[in-house]
Computed example of a mutant assay.
Amino acid sequence: MRIAAVPLEDRFVRLEPFDDALKGEVQAALDCDAASWDIMVAPAYGDHFEVWWRAALAAMQAQTRIAYAVRRRSDGAVVGTTSLYEINPAYRRCEIGSTFYRPEARGGAINPACKRLLLGHAFDAGAVRVEIITDAVNARSQAAILKLGAKAEGVLRKHKITWTGRARDTAMFAVIDDDWPEVRDGLDRRLATVS
């Protein structure tokens, strides 16, 4: 499994791998809604952005992550970020995460469009398992993940320590290659109904 760091796009979004030319747009997209960052493992807004950005680029250099700017096709604005990360070619698995959208980009076609592109890219590259994890206190995120078609696999207790020092329980979801055709078809049907 080798997942290439290439742009991905459909009629809703263009996912652009991080590079220095995107830094300002990504920072502007993430520098909002400070309260939403309280439950994140690592913050990326305000004074925290530079450290987060450098860590993302280092992980890309190590080929363990592909961090993407999420560009809304309707107006060309960068409205957030998402990643394929914890890329493990030996186990043919990765995770989708480090996802954050500006408030006005939440709840519409942006998230399912991003997930459709990322899942397709991973499975086309030979993945057999793609995980999507979230904080167990984030009911909205869990509902969105289930709506994508991922399967709930349980909660990992005290799985991560957030930047605020809280021991986070992590809700674990996954799509495996056996699930992918059904999940893909469901996402395609869902996105086909969006005007």
Score class of each variant (00 low, 15 high):
88 N>V: 11
37 W>H: 01
58 A>C: 02
33 D>F: 06
66 I>F: 03
72 R>Y: 05
68 Y>M: 02
62 A>W: 08
89 P>Q: 06
32 C>L: 11
57 L>V: 04
74 S>E: 12
51 V>S: 14
63 Q>N: 07
66 I>L: 07
54 R>G: 03
61 Q>D: 15
75 D>F: 00
76 G>L: 05
70 V>L: 03
76 G>C: 02
50 E>W: 03
35 A>Q: 14
47 D>T: 12
40 M>H: 14
63 Q>H: 10
59 A>N: 06
85 Y>K: 07
54 R>A: 13
88 N>Y: 07
62 A>R: 13
42 A>I: 11
75 D>G: 00
64 T>Y: 00
67 A>H: 09
84 L>N: 01
81 T>Y: 06
66 I>N: 08
89 P>S: 07
37 W>T: 01
66 I>D: 06
60 M>G: 05
39 I>D: 12
42 A>R: 15
43 P>Q: 08
36 S>D: 15
55 A>E: 13
87 I>T: 00
47 D>Y: 05
73 R>F: 00
82 T>Q: 07
58 A>I: 01
50 E>Q: 10
36 S>E: 12
36 S>K: 09
77 A>W: 08
71 R>D: 08
70 V>R: 00
33 D>K: 05
34 A>K: 12
54 R>D: 13
62 A>C: 06
88 N>T: 10
32 C>R: 13
81 T>R: 11
50 E>N: 09
34 A>F: 13
40 M>P: 02
45 Y>D: 15
80 G>C: 06
61 Q>A: 14
59 A>R: 13
61 Q>P: 03
34 A>M: 12
63 Q>F: 00
82 T>G: 04
34 A>I: 08
70 V>D: 03
46 G>M: 09
34 A>R: 15
48 H>C: 12
49 F>D: 03
49 F>K: 06
50 E>L: 06
33 D>I: 05
41 V>M: 13
63 Q>E: 15
56 A>C: 14
87 I>H: 01
46 G>N: 07
34 A>L: 14
40 M>S: 09
41 V>I: 14
48 H>E: 15
56 A>W: 04
74 S>W: 04
80 G>K: 10
61 Q>H: 11
42 A>M: 12
71 R>T: 12
70 V>Q: 00
67 A>Q: 15
54 R>Q: 15
39 I>R: 12
76 G>Y: 05
37 W>G: 00
88 N>E: 14
53 W>I: 03
87 I>S: 00
48 H>W: 10
72 R>V: 00
71 R>Q: 11
67 A>F: 09
77 A>E: 14
81 T>G: 04
43 P>A: 14
48 H>S: 15
76 G>S: 04
77 A>L: 13
35 A>G: 07
36 S>H: 15
47 D>W: 04
40 M>L: 13
71 R>K: 13
33 D>W: 06
49 F>R: 04
75 D>C: 01
88 N>K: 08
69 A>H: 02
56 A>I: 00
76 G>P: 02
78 V>P: 03
37 W>P: 00
65 R>C: 09
42 A>D: 12
50 E>I: 01
61 Q>V: 07
89 P>I: 05
60 M>T: 00
45 Y>R: 08
86 E>V: 07
78 V>F: 05
60 M>K: 02
48 H>V: 05
73 R>E: 06
34 A>G: 10
56 A>E: 14
61 Q>S: 11
38 D>T: 13
36 S>I: 04
49 F>I: 08
59 A>L: 09
85 Y>E: 07
41 V>N: 09
32 C>H: 06
41 V>F: 15
82 T>I: 10
38 D>W: 09
